[in-house]
Amino acid sequence: MAEHQALHPSEEPLRLLDESGSRVDGSGLPMPDTRRLLEVYGSLVTARRVNDQAGALVRQGRLAVYPSSHGQEACQVGAALALSDGDWLFPTYRDTAAVIARGVDPIEVLTLLQGDWHAGYDPYERKVAPQATPLATQLLHAVGVAHAARLKGEDTVVMALCGDGATSEGDFHEALNFAAVFRAPVVFFVQNNEYAISVPLARQSAAPSLAHKGVGYGVPGERVDGNDPAAVLAVLERAVADARAGGGPRLIEAHTYRIQAHTNADDDTRYRSGDEVDPWVARDPLTRLEKHLKRKRALTKARRTEITEAAEAVAAYMREGVVEGAEPEPAELFAHVFSEPTPQLAEQAAFLAEELSREGL
């Protein structure tokens, strides 16, 4: 019974900082040191600036689409910083800030969001898999990489990111089951931002929490305040350490909120009100950590200026590097799927060519 109870997450999401940036006791989590929190803060400022700049590029017609992680940046940064250089990150389409925090060139990251057929970056360079648009498919890939690393005797850990909507997909459950049976070193990190596009969490799951979904597979679960940067980092670092030590997979649920629309193609006012969004604005992870660091007198004016300027440099690099009017070649969609195209791919390629010809493109 005690062993089974250890699989259950905490009753409430773990936290180290409240909305005012004050220390909260009782979680049992170690507080990251000030140097580490300053690193987190710098990455948060850059992540917020990346979101804002990408949104501007969409409005200028220089990006085809952008799924903002505004308000979820603590999850993005925590996922990237909790990993060692030899570990792998498997992101979703909304995890651009995490990919950039992992060290991938921002212009390469934005290639996919310009409408190109490929991810834009070499996955092996920073050990970051391509950003996955289909829900939960990357989780199976993540488990495969983790299982292969374990078979080879490597100490690699894989961080597999997904949203609450992905937990309704079969791939999520298959990934958890395989990882548990073969004790694959995977940290499944669910960013529960309350919506799967327009579908609220209450219409997706009747479980006590999404972290409880690990119990049926023998995967320990934990819940964390996803807007508390210190707690997110502490929980993920502990999960990564446990997986690296041979403890098998972990399922972490971060409670956060998607402040902005699903993408620029979404009208979120059709399914939620401003009264729902406003309280979450007050829980902003960036301002929460800033208040904490100022209270500790660790965030000086000079340091804040340095961090802001570094973030602005990234934004300027994005503006200069995203070329307006870059036209992808549609036929390339089929060029690198198989060395020998299947009959189905050939049929699809011919259909697309006919459609484009009819439209005069």
Results as ranks from 00 to 15, higher is better:
A2K: 11
H4K: 15
E11W: 00
L14M: 12
R15F: 05
R15N: 02
L17Q: 08
G21A: 10
S22I: 05
S22Q: 11
G26H: 01
G26T: 02
L29G: 04
P30C: 08
M31T: 11
D33Y: 12
T34L: 13
T34W: 03
E39G: 15
S43L: 05
S43M: 09
V45E: 01
V45N: 07
A54D: 06
A54Y: 05
A56Q: 14
G61R: 10
R62W: 14
R62H: 12
V65C: 11
S68I: 03
S68W: 01
H70A: 15
G71T: 09
G78C: 04
A79T: 06
L81K: 01
L81C: 06
L83V: 06
S84K: 11
S84L: 10
D85M: 07
D87Q: 10
W88E: 01
A97M: 02
G103W: 08
V104P: 03
P106M: 05
E108N: 11
T111K: 15
L113P: 01
Y121A: 07
R126T: 08
R126D: 02
L140K: 04
V143M: 03
A148Q: 12
R150D: 09
K152E: 13
D155C: 08
M159F: 04
M159R: 07
G163S: 09
G165Q: 09
G170K: 07
F178S: 06
A179W: 04
F182C: 10
R183Q: 15
R183F: 03
R183V: 08
P185S: 13
F188D: 00
F189A: 09
V190I: 15
N192R: 02
E194K: 15
S198I: 09
S198P: 01
P200M: 14
R203E: 14
Q204R: 10
S205N: 04
A206C: 08
A206R: 11
P208A: 14
L210R: 00
A211F: 06
A211E: 02
G214A: 14
V215G: 04
V215D: 14
Y217L: 11
G218T: 09
V219T: 05
P220D: 10
P220I: 10
G221C: 11
A230R: 00
A231G: 12
A231W: 00
V232H: 07
V232F: 12
R238Y: 02
R250S: 06
I252P: 01
I252F: 03
H255F: 10
Y257L: 10
Y257V: 06
I259F: 03
I259H: 04
Q260F: 11
T269S: 15
S273H: 08
G274L: 12
G274V: 04
G274R: 12
D275W: 13
D284V: 06
D284G: 03
P285V: 06
K291I: 01
A298V: 05
R303L: 15
R303F: 08
E309Y: 01
A311Y: 10
A313Y: 07
Y317T: 14
V323L: 13
V323C: 08
P328H: 09
A331T: 08
L333K: 02
V337S: 12
F338A: 13
L345E: 06
Q348Y: 13
F351C: 09
R358Y: 05
